[in-house]
Nucleic acid binder design. Sequence first.
RNA 1: GAGGGUGUAGCUCAGUUGGUUAGAGCGCCAGGUUGUGGCCCUGGAGGCCGUGGGUUCAAAUCCCAUCACUCUCCCCA
Length: 425
Amino acid sequence: MNYQTLKGFRDLLPEETELWLWMEGIIRDLMRRYGFGELRLPCVEATELFTRGIGEGTDVVGKEMYSFLDRSDPPLSISLRPEMTAGAARAYVQYSIAQQQSVTRWYYVGPAFRYEQPQAGRYRQHSQFGVELIGSPRPEAEAEVLGLANDLLRDLGLSNYRLKINSLGMPQERTEFRSALVEFLRERSAQLSEDSRRRMEQNPLRVLDSKEEEDIEATVDAPSILEFLGEESRGHFQMVQQLLTAAKIPFEVDSRLVRGLDYYTRTVFEFVGGDLGAQNTLIGGGRYDNLIEEIGGKPAPAIGFGCGLDRLILSVQAANSGPQSAATVDAYIVALDDDARRWAVETAATLRRAGASVEFDLLGRSMKAQMREANRKGAVRAIIIGSNEMAAKVAQVKEMEANEQSEVPFDQLTDLITGKGKKEI
RNA sequence: GAGGGUGUAGCUCAGUUGGUUAGAGCGCCAGGUUGUGGCCCUGGAGGCCGUGGGUUCAAAUCCCAUCACUCUCCCCA
């Protein structure tokens, strides 16, 4: 085999697709109940949208973007979307949505791309579901979004996960905290890991959620962002917690929770799964009250999250949740000679038009092989046709599970297979 | 960008201190008398032992390189 999928990309074969369709069905039903409308965005946007929106210094745009020059003159730098919030914000501004409605509820499902080393639960093309709730600065918006995220995991049959929340404050609050933190870290830089000494310069908040033992020890007494929140931010965060408690959504405050995108303000959160390896963030998001303005719109408060569907699939598999019944075949037609095969083609067409799922042999195989195939496909029944049946215009219909066979006149077949003529005892 | 692990049949894997035609289970195909699936039995197809070099009388096995996959760090969904 010469060709294979590129590193970090993968195929989904029909067997696996079934699980995805099930999950997407649950998502769409949930979105209907919460009143969110589906947004479909291009996979490619101007690179600048992401650098402006997500932040030049973040890893996501700094080293993980799939960027290309297109063929226009002068060439335009375009990028595969690394996430969808920036695109959603762009659309919000582009179509002046703010003029049309005061609160906007959008969701999306689709692929996102990041050029990283693949590992368990992390791919260069991954599938993301996310919501954006735009227009409300109030903590009720947090409750709404966290509530639906929680419902999603519950609807998928998952229970092994935790919700962590934090507040990053508004930009000026964060700046103050940041300088206090840097000062603290400088004094202890000798105790920090090599990675963290580098982080100290680029993104000091990251040092706080380092996994290195030495970093954890060195930062036990580090200042907390929560101490730097002003009256308003503090009140907002307290209100969020009260609402979550009222809604009976379990959570824990983690003052070290930091997120990798620059646009977050105040509330940030993460749902982490226990069944995954190192890449255990199932859902990550937060409030981004400045993003819309940042990309050229009128200021609009907003909150949203991204949810990794690939990781959700892994969790569902680990939890042994998922759809209970596989696709079924209503009838498998077993034809014994050429005459019967012609009849099979014709009858399959009729039954399918009537709504039944029907299959038959395409290889001219023996009866035994056809019966085996019917069994393997999980057919509810086999319709067996030979020369005798053709002459008498009567089919042998065998209920596979019960192993019971009966004769059914041709003109009663459709009603039987589609269940219309069926009379339960 | 850094570090570990693994490459043998479609899949999951055995393969002894280097030794002759490379194995199992599952899956696939065909049979087990006339036109009936599952269970069982029999047979069959299917392998450049990841690739290239080296050591040796002899390499799936030892050495080197290389590629791929995988896990971890960084970072994130």
